[in-house]
């Protein structure tokens, strides 16, 4: 299990390759990356976080995923600071003997990272900066777990 919180960009392809390489215990690897989408004139995102609690919260979420599913590996990378359109904000990767566990754990990680890891997004758009409001659907998504 590995958790990285960083301002620097990461190489999604290289991370996926390294995560999958040399495994004999997993038949399935699932990866997901979240990118900055150019919504309505948006030019960048600024992501604030709570140093200390962020790492703690993500580690707790990843530990819970490891408890619920038969995983052989779990990686979470989440960036903070200013990110331009098209840049990767974050990624998760899960490895499991079978794909059902890898997919479910990756979705679980994503749902919890959205609403339980202390990050806040600010959109930098044509009309100036605007804090992104949490969506009720994101909170509701947690109830399925």
């Amino acid at each position: 299990m590995e958790v990285r919180v960083q301002p620097d960009p990461f190489d999604f392809g290289a991370e996926c390759g390294a995560f999958a390489a040399g495994r004999s215990d997993a038949g399935a690897v699932v990866t997901f990356a979240g990118l900055v989408r150019a919504d309505g004139g948006l030019s960048a995102l600024e992501i604030e976080h709570y140093p200390g609690m962020t790492e703690r919260a993500i580690t707790a979420i990843a530990q819970e995923a490891t408890r619920r599913w038969d995983l052989r590996g779990c990686l979470v990378i989440h960036r903070h600071g200013r990110l331009a359109v098209g840049e990767a904000i974050m990624m998760v990767a899960t490895a499991a003997p079978h794909r059902a566990d890898a997919f479910a754990a990756a979705e679980f990680l994503m749902d919890y990272l959205k609403s339980r890891a202390p990050f806040w997004k600010k959109e930098i758009g044509a009309d100036g900066p605007r804090w992104v409001a949490a969506r009720a659907e994101d909170e509701a998504a947690l109830t399925r777990w």
Partner: peptide
């Protein structure tokens, strides 16, 4: 609200707490 970096309720006691953080609902991912 988070007390010593764990999410908490507004009715939670503060005895023994060192750090209190207030923030809007999180928007990670």
């Amino acid at each position: 609200v988070a007390l010593d970096q764990d999410l908490a309720e507004f009715d939670a006691p503060l005895a023994g707490v060192r750090e209190v953080a207030f923030f809007p609902p999180m928007t990670g991912g």
